[in-house]
Design a protein around this nucleic acid. Structure first.
Lengths: 230, 230
DNA sequence: CATTATTAATCAAACGATTAACTTAGTCAA
DNA sequence: TTGACTAAGTTAATCGTTTGATTAATAATG
């Protein structure tokens, strides 16, 4: 019964699928998987409820399709960042101290890409979905991690290793990388506390700039030549 | 037949309420508010389903009661930490440099308290609930923030201010404080990524110690006398 | 004219809430 | 000590809704 036509990208069915994924992204993000009803999603997409079953096999199938969409969004945004990082890493100096400084710069570039991606207005919906999946990951999270997030974490870890004296595969290096990610992501994850403690409503471009600036100061201090990094 | 005290805290009803809150904490934490059914909660509590309505007015009332319970747990754990901090702050030196060093030490003590609290085995259930509430806070989150979390954030901000040159009410100071919290909390919030990137399953006492150690190194570098703070 | 897509209607299951009957426990007059 | 009386607590059953899924009939497409 169900059929995924991949040649007609703007066929009738394709439009419906797109409308459903778009609406589902918002409704799932707002309410979570269980609280979101297929009826509210189909209504938001201006589409008959039975079409969810027809095109995606069911509610769960639509949910997974949403994560496929998120993955493509993230990939699209981070691809140029990854290319930039790869290019610059190849040209790193032989000198240890110079290379540390270069790696530090690239590390900040990479994290700025992360901050900007999560700062985009339309990312708010899928940040919620990702956070929910983090709690007890399912197949949906697997799509993201295998597709992109794992790669990004490894890239960040490599840069941290180059910018410090920590071996790339050491636990300390991975923990410190994780902490850097935490410094950035909590502003998006813990909106409840963020909005109250900082009196920020949402994350304006100004707020994003403040974030990038303070993160840079923090990282430069942590990776300063004299810093006790072991 | 007059053994039972009339002002007792372990009357029949009180036992039922406790059993329900205990079970609800687990089920709500596991599945979230919507996916958790009153039937599954009452079954886990070995109690009739109608008693949720009788004792708490309904599902939502039980949910709020669970957050009241969480608040008391957090308060219980953090109270001694807050006392310690308050005491030591009062005895801080007049000398600026010495005070910075003292504040840094106390800051680490305070954060270690935070790390230990979230590291407790039984905290996993309510960490999930808090994270869920962070996304779009309701009355339930208000209970936590007004009751404890706001106070703690302000305390941390004060310590950051004393350990740096940042004014306590400056945006930079609050942002940096928030980043420190993020360094610690992401390990509990983003379990999906944590477990994959670090090959940690759950958070063992060893992992907690690693966390404290690496956090201390990070903070000492960030607050080193030479660090460019602001 | 056959494939693809859409529609309204309907299904059984699960949901939160509520009811009325029933049990337990503490109070107090006799 | 007893036993009727009352309030608090508990129980099984049922209420009306909403849920995700599925059906058969219809429409659009190329």
């Amino acid at each position: 019964m169900r059929n995924m036509n991949s040649t007609d990208t703007s066929s009738r069915g394709e439009q419906t699928r797109h409308a459903l994924i778009d609406a589902a992204l918002k409704v799932f993000g707002q309410a979570g998987f269980d609280a979101a009803s297929t009826r509210s999603i189909s209504k938001a997409a201006n589409v008959n409820q039975a079409l969810i079953g027809y095109h995606f096999g069911g509610k769960r199938g639509l949910y997974l399709a949403v994560f496929g969409h998120i993955l493509s969004q993230i990939t699209e945004h981070m691809a140029p960042v990854i290319v930039t990082v790869s290019d610059r890493v190849e040209g790193f100096s032989e000198d240890v101290e110079m290379r540390r400084q270069e790696a530090l710069e690239v590390l900040i570039v990479a994290f700025n890409g992360l901050i900007e991606m999560f700062g985009r207005a339309d990312s708010a919906a899928w940040v919620r979905l990702i956070v929910r999946e983090q709690q007890d990951p399912t197949d949906a999270f697997e799509i993201l991690y295998e597709g992109m997030m794992g790669r990004m974490m490894n890239m960040m870890t490599m840069l941290v290793s180059l910018a410090s004296d920590l071996p790339e595969d050491s636990e300390a290096c991975r923990v410190r990388t994780h902490m850097l990610v935490g410094q950035v992501l909590l502003f998006h994850i813990a909106r409840g506390t963020t909005s109250r403690h900082l009196s920020w409503s949402g994350l304006s471009p100004d707020n994003i700039n403040t974030l990038k600036e303070q993160f840079r100061l923090s990282v430069e201090a942590q990776f300063a030549p004299g810093a006790a990094f072991q």
